[in-house]
Amino acid sequence: MTQEQFSKYSFLLDRTARTVKQYAQRKFKLGDFDITVDQWLIMKNLSENELLSQAELAQLVFKDQPTLTRIIDILSKKGYVARKPHPQDRRSFQLILTDAGKNKVKELKPQVASIREKAWENLDESDFEEFKRILNTIYNNLS
């Protein structure tokens, strides 16, 4: 592959990722979800994994510690996330969804699924498999 081709494909990947996120952000705002896409990502991961530390959650959602702390602070103020002292490490906390947070995730799951489905329109199963293979190859090349 030439440098020019590589540049084009990198641009397409970046443009697509940015467009997907912008589309989701618009839908979240228009839908009056009371949370952002990044906040949803945190809440969704907490709903799927009980008692995560901030470090574990940061790895799962690919956020640095300061950014994650800001998001957790906002979700805490909204009453969706709580910090509880870590039983083995007094210096850290475990994060949990509150009942309000669990209800918010349950309420938004179908709406978020429909947002995602828009991006996947007109693609069939073989498209998904090829896409997954390519993304995993790129990820593994860089890991």
Score class of each variant (00 low, 15 high):
41 L>W: 00
139 Y>G: 03
7 S>E: 15
45 N>E: 14
55 A>Y: 13
54 Q>H: 08
126 S>I: 10
49 N>Q: 07
124 D>W: 04
130 E>N: 11
60 L>H: 08
133 R>V: 07
141 N>F: 12
142 L>R: 14
62 F>S: 13
48 E>T: 12
21 K>Y: 03
89 D>I: 00
81 V>A: 10
76 S>Y: 05
58 A>W: 03
62 F>W: 08
123 L>H: 14
58 A>E: 04
73 D>W: 03
113 A>L: 15
52 L>R: 04
134 I>T: 12
87 P>T: 03
17 A>S: 10
4 E>M: 10
8 K>W: 03
70 R>D: 03
102 K>E: 13
79 G>N: 05
96 I>Q: 15
51 L>F: 11
56 E>A: 15
21 K>W: 01
95 L>E: 02
93 F>M: 09
8 K>A: 07
97 L>K: 07
42 I>G: 00
118 K>E: 15
109 K>Q: 11
138 I>E: 08
75 L>T: 01
134 I>G: 04
11 F>S: 10
24 A>H: 00
1 M>T: 11
92 S>L: 11
24 A>G: 09
38 D>R: 10
16 T>N: 02
136 N>F: 05
65 Q>F: 14
89 D>G: 05
65 Q>M: 12
95 L>G: 06
46 L>F: 08
110 P>G: 02
90 R>I: 13
102 K>F: 09
81 V>W: 04
135 L>P: 04
48 E>N: 15
38 D>L: 09
51 L>P: 07
24 A>W: 00
107 E>C: 02
96 I>E: 13
49 N>L: 10
119 A>H: 11
3 Q>D: 15
75 L>K: 07
94 Q>T: 13
67 T>W: 01
11 F>Q: 15
47 S>M: 07
106 K>T: 09
98 T>P: 11
28 F>D: 00
3 Q>V: 11
46 L>D: 06
32 D>Q: 15
26 R>T: 09
27 K>I: 07
106 K>V: 04
142 L>A: 11
131 F>S: 14
141 N>S: 14
35 I>F: 02
123 L>E: 08
4 E>T: 14
57 L>W: 03
34 D>R: 02
86 H>V: 05
98 T>I: 00
68 L>K: 07
93 F>W: 06
132 K>P: 05
42 I>D: 01
49 N>Y: 14
21 K>T: 00
6 F>G: 12
136 N>Y: 06
39 Q>E: 15
137 T>Q: 10
50 E>T: 11
63 K>L: 14
